[in-house]
């Protein structure tokens, strides 16, 4: 259980419409990721689903039941906040037990559930500590623990990993994915991070200024972005866009080619240019090439490829990986 439907939902703060009419369907058991630039309304959308904000117009249904005016706690959802929002004056055990206590469960049941959650999340040794005495990753796990024990029909995560360092982030990412695999509960996950979105999601929702630009599996979005915005947003480094004659030659206003779909050679190719910066990542190298008449293009080459700032190179795009866009920015298929 955990199907969530948004039907013509809008949200207005004062006079500013942050979410224009929006439809969205989230299937039971899905891992859905909301991505989009800062301020595009990801958190707002999540909070509307949670019930922490009132929708201005439109309807939200959870498992077929109207939930638009249901109190947050009654929606059967659990939320993990970016700041973890742990209760600083309660021990880990009390934190995890809090929603159960609020639900009025008997003490013995609470004990058991907390113990199980602690076991799953490796928190057993820390149950008596206060949040202030935990590391970032541990706090994150407590926040997840507090969400799990409620056995919600869906989990909501708002950038849960953004306060962690890079290594821990990778770990927690895996843990959350594993959790999803074992619980099979719907999860809605907001993130800025490309990699999180691509690796964790069953379905990605790309938002821009409150509008849904495209919904699809990570590979769908990567292979067939519906418009310029999605094309530019999904994939790292960003897709190169080329306008003018080259685009017209492909019967498009703009053509896009991803850095990994450009072949680089030192002796011959379609576009000539000079390397302005070479970023060596080890496994591969990103070349920022100042071309003669197409501006700066980025290309991804093998880490062994040896060029330096100032080297002269030739770029050749893989024609079948070119994306074509019309004057309105929509993809031409």
């Amino acid at each position: 259980m955990g199907e969530i439907v948004l039907d013509q939902v809008t949200k207005t703060f004062g006079h500013v419409q942050v979410i224009p009419p929006l439809d969205l369907q989230i299937e039971d058991g899905e891992f859905v990721v909301f991505v989009g630039p800062s301020g595009c309304g990801k958190s707002t959308l999540l909070r509307l689903i949670a019930g922490l904000e009132d929708v201005t117009t439109g309807e939200i249904r959870i498992d077929g039941e109207p939930a638009t005016h249901t109190a947050p706690a009654k929606r059967g959802l659990a939320m993990v906040f970016q700041s973890y929002a742990l209760y600083p004056h309660m021990s880990v055990k009390k934190n995890i037990a809090f929603p159960l206590k609020m639900a009025g469960l008997p003490q013995s049941v609470i004990e058991e559930k907390v113990e199980n959650a602690a076991k799953v999340l490796n928190l057993t040794d820390y149950l008596d500590r206060r949040p202030g005495q935990l590391s970032g990753g541990q706090r994150q796990r407590v926040a997840i623990g507090r969400a799990i024990v409620r056995e919600p029909s869906a989990f909501l995560f708002d950038e849960p990993l953004s306060n962690l360092d890079a290594a821990l982030r990778v770990n927690m990412r895996l843990e959350i994915s594993e959790l999803h695999n074992s619980l099979k509960t719907t999860m809605i996950y907001v993130t800025h991070d490309q990699v999180e979105a691509m690796t964790m999601a069953d379905k990605i929702v790309v938002l821009n200024a409150g509008r849904v630009e495209q919904v699809g599996s990570p590979l769908d979005l990567y292979n067939a972005p519906r418009n310029l915005f999605v094309a530019g947003f999904i994939g790292s480094p960003k897709m190169n866009f080329i306008e003018g004659e080259t685009a017209e030659a492909h019967r498009a206003t703009t053509v896009g080619i991803r850095p990994e779909h450009i072949a680089v050679s030192t002796d011959a190719g379609s576009w000539a240019g000079v390397v302005s910066v070479a970023e060596h990542l080890g496994s591969d190298t990103l070349l920022h090439v100042q071309t003669e008449n197409l501006g700066t293009l980025t290309a991804r080459v093998d880490g062994e490829f040896s060029v330096r700032h100032g080297s002269r190179v030739f770029l050749t795009p893989q024609e079948d990986k070119m994306h074509r866009f019309d004057a309105r920015g929509l993809a031409i298929r």
Binding site: P72, Y87, P88, P99
Partner: peptide, 26 residues
């Protein structure tokens, strides 16, 4: 942090429980 009070509401605390168990102790 406001998020803590929101977390309490998600956890099913009403205004009274929120004041009693979360806000006041903090």
């Amino acid at each position: 942090p406001g998020e803590i009070l929101e977390a309490a509401r998600m956890d099913g605390a009403g205004l009274k429980a929120e004041l009693l168990y979360v806000l006041t102790p903090m």
